[in-house]
Amino acid sequence: MTEEPYRWLEAVANRREYVREQLKGGTPVLGASLPEGILLLGVGGGQSKVFELFDRHALAGLGHPADIERIRQAAIDAAHVEAFTRAPEDVSLRRLVGFGLGPQLKTNFEQIFSAPFLVELLLAELGPEPGRDLFFRLHFDGSYQTQFGGAVVAAIDAEAEAGARKWLGEMIQTKTDRKEAADLLLQAWWRLSENKPFTERLPEEEARRAGWREAAKGKEIEIGWLARRSSRPARYQAPTAAELGL
């Protein structure tokens, strides 16, 4: 069937539809650049969503755990080989995604006789200052967008994701504290999980807070923190929600 070009296009379109359908059950992951570091957050039912990649690099993802694991492992392998053959300072997200993960995902997506990766990912690189914190929003087909600083979201629905990112981008500017920022990300997570749009008037802060607390009951809030100031090369920490005072 793939000998005919239009058949191939049809197969790829079907594949895109299949991946989106499979990802529907996934809950969003979110990130924010703060004065003291980068916060990544996900809420799950026991399966990890936030991971350390390298000294200043972390990943958060939604999708099939086995596929997230394969991408995570590929990124860790590439980062450590790069650090060993050159230097840890040479490990960059731009090269990791642009020359590694992105092309690999695209190739996999277009090989229509193999299983596609069921993932949507956020990758973060800690910079020397918040304005130089770099985020990559990497999609299952290998396409990606970049952003310096601010807040980022990976969700299933592109429109809802854009709405959440815009809302968070405005709200996060007043937040400098990890607890406050995590609380805000959880409010956005709740809104996205409930499939409520960000275009209409949102409930008051207390209602939003009560909303995420109710929705997160019985689930695990997973937090990754890349600390800007540290005496050690490895900046990643994984504080619990209780440690953040949530």
Binding site: S48, F51, E52, L53, F54, Q73, I76, D77, H80, A83, F84, A234
Partner: peptide
């Protein structure tokens, strides 16, 4: 020393 530093961190990150 460099091999050990990278090996130990690689194991910790990849194997969690």
């Amino acid at each position: 020393a460099r091999v050990l530093q990278t090996s130990f961190e690689y194991y910790r990150r990849s194997q969690l």
